[in-house]
Write a protein that binds this DNA or RNA. Structure first.
Lengths: 208, 208
DNA sequence: AGTTTGACTTACCAATCGGTAAGTGTCAAT
DNA sequence: ATTGACACTTACCGATTGGTAAGTCAAACT
C-alpha cells in the first residue's frame, strides 16, 4: 500500500518535531518536505496543535502496544519488565524519534495546552509499578519506592535513546552503533541486578 | 550585593529557557519579565544566541565545579562517583533548571549552531569514565562497557530531574516532594548495587 | 450533463520574530 | 559648563509565523 499524503505528512512531521521540537518546526517546513504548500497541510490538519496532537496519540498507542505485548508474554514479572524496558532501547537509530518526542513532552507539557504527556504517562507508570510489585525481590518495597526504581530504569533507557544525536556527534557513527550494542547488554545486566538483588530493600524500614 | 540588571536578565532567561526551550522564548518575553523593552536586553547581550551561549557556559562551569568537588574529596572512587551523581538529583525543585536545559541541548544540538552540549559532554564523560574504571568491581570492564554503565546512572538521575514539571502535574506537589526523597535514597542504593556487585562483569568475555 | 467531493493553490492577513538606528535622560568626571 | 559613558526607549525593519478566504481543477457520483 502506498501511503496517503496525509500519512506521509504525519511521518515527516514526526521526524521534524523529534529533531527540532514543536516551536522549532513550522507547518511550512513540513509541507515543503513534500513540495506542498502549507495550506495543503492545513487541509488535512486544521491547526498545528491538532497535527502535533495526532502524533502524540500515535505514540501513546505504540507505547500501550509495547506494554501489552510485554505483559501478555506469560513470562515471570521480572522477565516481562525486562522485555518492556529493553524494547525502549533503539535497535536502529531511527527508533529514537518516539523517545525524543516524549522527552520534549516531558519537558514542555507544563506550558503548552497539550497535557498528553501527563495523561499517557500516569496509567503507564501505574501499570508498570503494579507489574513491578509482583517481582519477588521487590515485595517489601512501598509503592513510592517501587515507582522510584522503575523511574530509574526508565531513565537509564530513555536518556540513552535521547542522546543519540549528541553521542553520534561525539563518537561518530561506528562507535555509536557499537555503544548501542554494549549498552543493551549492560542494560539487561542492570535489570537483572536490580530485580534479583537485595540492596534495594535495605531501606524498607525507613520508608514502610 | 544586589544583582545587576544584567545578572537578573541572565537568571530569568535561564528559567524561561529551561521551561520553554530556545525557540519557545523570545527576547521580548525575557525583558518583559523585568518591565524592560527587548532593546534593553539587546543592550547587554548583542544577540539571542549570545545570551543563550552565556547560560550554557555558566552551566558548563557549574558542572565542572561539581565534578572537581566530588573528585577532590579523597574518598574511594565509588564514593566519589556516588557524590557526583547524587548531586545531580535536585534537592529542591528549582534545581532542575540545569538538568532541563542540558536535556534540551542534548536533544537539539545537532541542529542549532551551538555545539556546547557536545564540547562540555565529551570531557565530562571521559573524566567520569576514567574515575569509574578505578572502581575495583569494574576493573574488568572495557571502556565502552564502563561508559555504558555510567550513562545508565546519568540517565537515571537526569531523567528524574527533567520530569519534575510533569511528575508534579501528575502527583501534586506534596507527593512529588516525597517521591524526590525516596528517589534519592533508592538512587544511592542503585549506585551501591552497581559499584559493588558482580553481575555487570558477566559479559566481559563477550566484549573484551 | 450536472453536481459534488477531495486535493490542492494563490492571495492575503495580523502578529510576532530577531535585530538596527537613532535618540533621551541621568550621573560622574573633567 | 561640557563631555562622555551608561542605561535605557521609541521607531522602525524585513522575514516568518499560524491561519482565513476564496478559488482551481480533475475525478467520481447521480
Amino acid at each position: 500500500m502506498t501511503p496517503t499524503t496525509r500519512q506521509q505528512l504525519l511521518a515527516t512531521a514526526r521526524t521534524l518535531f523529534a529533531d527540532r521540537g514543536f516551536y522549532g518546526v513550522s507547518i511550512a517546513n513540513i509541507a515543503d518536505e513534500h513540495g506542498l504548500s502549507k495550506q495543503a497541510l492545513l487541509h488535512y490538519f486544521p491547526t498545528k496543535e491538532k497535527l502535533y496532537g495526532e502524533i502524540l496519540k500515535e505514540i501513546a498507542s505504540e507505547l500501550e502496544q509495547m506494554k501489552s505485548d510485554a505483559m501478555s508474554s506469560g513470562a515471570d514479572p521480572a522477565e516481562q519488565l525486562k522485555r518492556l524496558l529493553s524494547g525502549m532501547i533503539p535497535a536502529h537509530p531511527a527508533d529514537t524519534e518516539r523517545a525524543r518526542i516524549l522527552m520534549r513532552e516531558l519537558l514542555d507539557n507544563k506550558h503548552r495546552a497539550e497535557t498528553v504527556g501527563a495523561w499517557y504517562l500516569k496509567p503507564f507508570l501505574e501499570d508498570i509499578t503494579n507489574l513491578a510489585k509482583t517481582i519477588p525481590a521487590w515485595s517489601n518495597l512501598s509503592d513510592t519506592q517501587t515507582l522510584a526504581v522503575i523511574y530509574q530504569l526508565l531513565g537509564a533507557a530513555n536518556y540513552f535513546s535521547v542522546s543519540e544525536p549528541t553521542l553520534r556527534g561525539i563518537f561518530g557513527k561506528r562507535n555509536y552503533v557499537a555503544l548501542t550494542r554494549v549498552f543493551a547488554t549492560q542494560f539487561d545486566a542492570l535489570i537483572d541486578a536490580v530485580t534479583s538483588g537485595s540492596p534495594l530493600q535495605k531501606e524498607k524500614t525507613i520508608y514502610p
